[in-house]
């Protein structure tokens, strides 16, 4: 009877601990819904057509929107993607198709370490590299900082995708007398294309929400600007400036910006994941 009692105690303790682990998962998921839900409720009441089509108004003047910073974000992130994607994918090709030995593992290691560099540091580097030389804040310098953040993410996800392309396909192509470089361009790249797009979209979603590196690179701008050599408004930076302002009206705008930003980031993120999941399913089935 004594052993039974001890076993009961062990069992109850175990069940309690496992219950706590369920609670932990529940807590994390509810945090997600709390944060998203609150952003949605606060944001939806401040989002209207003007928000997407008008320029910001000065403090105290009601109305206006953040059209310029939405477009600005797209420009800054787009230029960053144009810089990071070619370098990232070409590097990933080298690492997965040719990369053996010391040089390749060094590149891999350095790019993994680069992936852990805080966003704000990327901003400082772009500041030192571009802003101090051009003597002014610019959209271009913002793009440089985001490209620095994107590059290691793209290298890593692309290399991994290339490695999922089965070697039997490369062999089939070699055996047909197709040179390696053509095999890479027309078989490996094509087979991997879905995964590459997904990885790139995830990288864009990841840096698209960053404000830290843009604060002192692309800076901000209350007007329309399409010149990459000039300061440019972006959604994250405006969100930050509005949220820490004391004005009720601006805080409202911050929530609207938050909703739009979260919406864009999550739509990119979720659609990329769903696409990959569907493709993976098809490949297996």
């Amino acid at each position: 009877m004594k052993t039974d009692f001890r076993y009961m105690r062990r069992k109850i303790f175990g069940t309690m601990m496992l219950g706590l682990s369920i609670l932990a998962a529940l807590a994390a998921v509810s945090m997600l819904f709390w944060i998203l839900g609150y952003t949605f409720i606060k944001g939806i009441s401040a989002v209207n057509l003007d928000f997407f089509t008008k320029l910001p108004t000065p403090v105290g003047v009601p109305g206006g929107g953040l059209a310029n910073s939405i477009v600005g974000s797209i420009i800054v992130v787009g230029m960053a993607a144009l810089m990071a994607i070619p370098v990232g994918i070409a590097t990933a090709i080298y690492l997965s198709e040719y990369g053996r030995g010391f040089f390749a593992s060094t590149v891999r290691f350095v790019s993994d370490v680069l992936a852990g560099v805080p966003a704000i540091v990327a901003g400082i580097v772009a500041y030192a590299l571009v802003v101090t030389r051009m003597h002014r804040f610019s959209a271009f310098s913002g793009s440089v900082s985001l490209a620095l953040l994107m590059l290691p993410i793209i290298i890593r996800s692309s290399e991994e995708i290339f490695r999922t392309v089965p070697d039997t396909l490369r062999e089939a192509s070699f055996a047909l007398g197709v040179p390696k470089w053509k095999t890479i361009l027309s078989i490996v790249l094509k087979t991997a294309s879905g995964g590459l797009v997904t990885g790139t979209i995830l990288a864009i979603a990841r840096v698209g929400g960053e404000a830290a590196p843009l604060l002192f690179t692309s800076f901000s701008n209350s007007f329309w600007n399409f010149n990459p050599g000039q300061p440019m408004a972006t959604l994250p930076v405006d969100l930050f400036n509005y949220s820490i302002s004391p004005y009720q009206d601006w805080q409202q705008k911050a929530w609207a910006a938050a909703l739009v930003l979260v919406g864009m980031v999550l739509i990119l993120n979720i659609s990329a994941r769903l696409y990959l999941a569907r493709k993976g399913f098809k490949r297996n089935g």
Partner: peptide, 23 residues
């Protein structure tokens, strides 16, 4: 659940800040 928790990682830092500040 795995998907939802990974989604938590996708939310921009600013949104956490906004929530921390106002909620």
């Amino acid at each position: 659940v795995g998907f939802l928790i990974e989604l938590l990682a996708a939310i921009p830092s600013l949104i956490f800040g906004l929530w921390g500040l106002f909620v």
